[in-house]
């Protein structure tokens, strides 16, 4: 069996409150395992401990108790971060740098060989659709563009694990859709993705498994189908079915003793409708 991409064993995090005799417990005995190639969504309301969990995994925050490994290696070892790409929540970058300069800077930090920096930066600017804005300063970028350059800097050193903190927060539906598509294509390429969000519909569309965090405790986790499926119900979606066929099916259902709960016309989501109407606007 291959090594888990991310493994948290009994991880707790307690923040002392300065000048007061009390503490904030951000995480309590968190156990989590993410397989390589999996897209895992960490859900939870604000203040549930999602960002703290991600920062602990990336190594920005040390756990008070417990152990974290990334592809079998302790995450306290700085070299582990060669395997991790991180997009912080509401990420800001140096506003005085252009998109291309930002990627070059992060490529140097990520250990990309000097000879490969230019081509990798070009490739990622193309991937995130910012080739046209490569020389523009980040101070002039929209939120969606900043999020895309953030994703590009996270990917610059070809990490095996991508950690995204609220990647679609504050984005319009088109920007959010672009990020979702990127995550899906990264998954196809074999990357492991861990993302946090409170936008449940988006998580449902891209994640293989989800975990629900509340007040620092992981309440439930599992595959979406297992968590959301209703065991004793079946859904049939027919196309171009004549009225006679539908009547026949309903008679058969009645005869078999099963119960028809609902008969309705499937609807696309409001987001899909919005995207169809607005197309794919340029940033």
């Amino acid at each position: 069996m291959s090594e888990a991409a991310v493994r948290l064993d009994n991880v707790s995090k307690v923040f002392p409150v300065p000048l007061r005799r009390r503490v904030n417990v951000a995480l309590r005995d968190l156990n989590l395992e993410i397989a390589p190639g999996e897209v895992y969504g960490l859900l939870g309301p604000n203040g549930s401990g999602k960002s703290t969990t991600l920062k602990i995994i990336v190594g920005l925050v040390a756990p008070t108790r417990g152990r974290v490994t990334i592809f079998g290696r302790e995450n306290s070892v700085v070299a582990t971060r060669r395997d991790i790409g991180f997009l912080p929540e509401n990420a800001y970058f140096h506003k005085f740098l252009s998109g291309e300069e930002t990627l070059r800077f992060h490529a140097k930090l990520g250990g990309v060989p000097a000879g490969g920096i230019a081509s990798r930066a070009n490739e990622l600017l193309e991937t995130v659709g910012l080739t046209h804005a490569r020389h523009a300063r980040l101070g002039t970028y929209s939120k969606g563009m900043l999020q895309r350059i953030g994703l590009a800097q996270a990917l610059i050193h070809k990490p095996k694990l991508l950690v995204l903190d609220e990647p679609t927060a504050a984005l319009d539906p088109a920007g959010s859709h672009d990020i979702q598509n990127l995550i899906t294509s990264l998954k196809r390429e074999g990357a492991t993705v861990l993302l946090s969000s409170h936008l449940l519909t988006q998580v449902q569309e891209v994640c293989d498994r989800v975990g629900i965090l509340h007040r620092g405790k992981l309440l439930r986790q599992g595959r979406l189908g297992d968590l959301l499926g209703v065991a004793n119900q079946t859904e049939l979606v027919l196309e171009n079915a004549p009225a006679e066929l539908l009547a026949e099916i309903e008679r058969e259902i009645e005869a078999s003793g099963a119960r028809l709960i609902a008969r309705r016309q499937p609807q696309s989501s409001l987001e899909q409708f919005f995207l169809n109407v607005t197309g794919q606007p340029d940033e």
């Binding site: 920062k55 990336v58 190594g59 920005l60 700085v78 070299a79 582990t80 971060r81 060669r82 991790i84 790409g85 991180f86 997009l87 912080p88 929540e89 509401n90 990420a91 800001y92 970058f93 140096h94 992060h106 930090l109 990520g110 250990g111 953030g150 800097q153 996270a154 050193h157 950690v163």
Partner: peptide
């Protein structure tokens, strides 16, 4: 404040 430090220290930078 700008959270720039997160994206820097998330790289293999001590």
């Amino acid at each position: 404040e700008d959270r720039v430090i997160y994206s820097v220290l998330a790289k293999p930078v001590t």
